Simulated assay, not measured.
Amino acid sequence: MRLRELRKAGDLTGLQLAERLGWPQSKVSKLENGKQTATADDLRRWADGTAHPNAGAELTSRLAALESHTRSWRRQLASGHRAVQETLNAEFARTETFRAWEGAMIVGVLQTADYARHIFTRYANLHRSPRDIEDAVRARMKRQVGLYEPGGRYRIIMWEAALHAMVCPPAVLAAQLDRLTGVIGMDTVELGIIPFGAPLRIPPANGFWIFDERLVIVEDWHAELWIDDASAVSTYERAWDTLQASAVYGADAHHLISRVRRELRADTP
């Protein structure tokens, strides 16, 4: 919207601005309609081309704010998955209470190395990103040191579907389920599982992670959303509390995971 305002204030058509900047007209249209992400250089040239050079700083500032909250996978994974994992490790290091909801796969901080390896491979295939799988796995495993350090608290809830998802070979999933039963009872971990038959107060939508009360990270197919607005964070906290009310813990969670583990063994040739 702001780009269109500047163009019109400069009394320019899209074609005229494109010719002035040496761009295809389609680029001007895509930038104005949000169908293409502008670079900082694009925005500076737009400001100059519309005779509003002072607007350049405003536009690049808006871009920086947008990118800090919407982190596209295309940009984040330009050099592979390891850098993303190291960024997350820094957030974990400064967090006292971590809350997570995951409905589709095992939460990263509880993954085995083999399970993580298959997850990273599948996402590298999806995003066509550099395949630094082993470096990414090692970076993710570093995060798990916090599970054994006093003072930290991990409150994790998962839908039963995450226990069944065959995103890896059966033997790898079996070992992953054994890992989950092993964390039940740890002083630093509170693991809840929502059974398939449990009544739900809200739909089990996409996963999210809450870092203390300051940050929420939501994963989508095209990007991660980093949310630090207090009101929005509160919404995710309410969503987590609502989902948590349907979860089972302790011995009940252990029995549920063990049942899935036995079913997996029965189905494995």
Results as ranks from 00 to 15, higher is better:
L3E: 03
R4W: 04
L12R: 02
L12D: 09
L12P: 11
G14P: 08
L15W: 03
Q16R: 03
Q16G: 11
E19C: 01
Q25R: 07
V28T: 12
S29R: 04
K30W: 05
E32V: 10
N33L: 09
D48K: 08
D48P: 12
G56E: 13
E58I: 12
T60Q: 04
S61G: 14
R62F: 15
A64P: 01
A65R: 10
A65L: 14
E67Y: 00
H69R: 10
R74M: 04
G80Q: 02
H81G: 12
A83Q: 09
Q85T: 07
Q85M: 09
N89H: 07
A90Q: 08
A93I: 01
E96A: 09
T97E: 05
R99P: 02
W101A: 08
V109H: 11
L110P: 01
T112G: 06
T112M: 01
T112Q: 01
A116S: 11
A116V: 12
H127G: 06
P130R: 10
P130K: 08
E134L: 10
E134I: 06
D135W: 14
V137Y: 00
R140D: 07
R140F: 09
R143F: 07
V145H: 05
L147A: 11
Y148F: 09
R153C: 14
Y154H: 09
R155T: 11
R155W: 12
I156A: 01
M158S: 14
W159C: 03
W159E: 15
A162C: 13
A162M: 06
A165L: 09
V167H: 03
P169W: 05
A171V: 09
A171L: 13
L173M: 11
A174R: 10
L180W: 07
G185K: 13
D187W: 05
E190K: 04
E190T: 13
E190S: 13
I194E: 13
P195R: 03
P195I: 10
I202T: 05
N206L: 11
F211D: 00
D212W: 13
D212L: 07
L215H: 06
W221K: 08
A223W: 04
L225M: 07
W226P: 00
A230F: 03
V233D: 13
S234C: 05
T235G: 12
Y236C: 12
A247K: 04
A247P: 08
V248N: 10
V248M: 14
A251H: 05
S258H: 02
R262K: 12
R262F: 15
D267T: 10
P269V: 05
P269G: 08
